[in-house]
């Protein structure tokens, strides 16, 4: 990594490909993806960590990419919606969103899907949420209230929540 007072060049792995970037230090991960790598699947709904539209996976964990400075991802691995699946080879959660119509305008959708991937993994690791009755339990049962709670960082103004719940239920073990 080289840096000046204004910019840095660094390497980050995006959807499996190493990317050498030379960016303004103020650039967020979200803007790096959208404006510099032309990966516009991650959406900007608020730029303040309040909506979840920009959710991507950073080393497998879901993050609001608008709250991550791009330079801080040096050496890390990012998965965006484009890396999760493609039209020819959809990720099971992408397919479930289609099957259950878990989207309308589609603007929150990539964030919802990345968030769902992250949430399922968190539950699999036994991480509790505010809806978990027994936070000491080894195993989390992802019932409706768990899914709703874990997905509440992803706003959907179109109100696709009922169908998003159904989609995640269809793929959750």
């Amino acid at each position: 990594m080289t840096s000046s007072s204004l910019s840095s060049s660094f390497t980050v792995t995006v959807n499996g490909e190493p990317q050498l970037l030379d960016l303004d230090n103020r650039t967020t991960l979200l803007d790096a993806l959208r404006e510099h790598l032309d990966l516009t699947g991650a959406k900007k709904g608020c730029d303040h960590g309040q909506c979840g539209a920009c959710t991507v996976l950073l080393d497998g964990r879901r993050v609001n990419s608008c709250l991550v400075l791009a330079v801080a991802t040096q050496g890390h691995s990012i998965t965006t919606i484009e890396g999760l699946g493609t039209a020819e080879r959809l990720h099971p959660i992408q397919q479930a969103f289609i099957d259950h119509d878990g989207l309308q305008c589609g603007y929150c959708t990539p964030g919802q899907i990345c968030s769902a991937v992250g949430a399922l993994d968190e539950a699999d690791r036994g991480w509790p949420s505010a809806a978990t009755a027994d936070v000491g339990a080894e195993k989390i049962t992802l019932d409706d209230s768990e899914i709703r709670e874990r997905m509440s960082g992803n706003l959907c103004r179109c109100g696709a929540y009922v169908n998003i719940l159904a989609a995640i239920n269809a793929v959750s073990p």
Binding site: D38, L39, I81, I98, D99, D101, Y107
Partner: peptide
């Protein structure tokens, strides 16, 4: 029937107005 633009939307391929470089 399924939304005809569903695949474009779930894969992030659908481009919105601020996304044309």
């Amino acid at each position: 029937i399924n939304r005809l633009d569903a695949i474009a939307k779930v894969t992030g391929e659908a481009r919105y107005s601020g996304e044309y470089p």
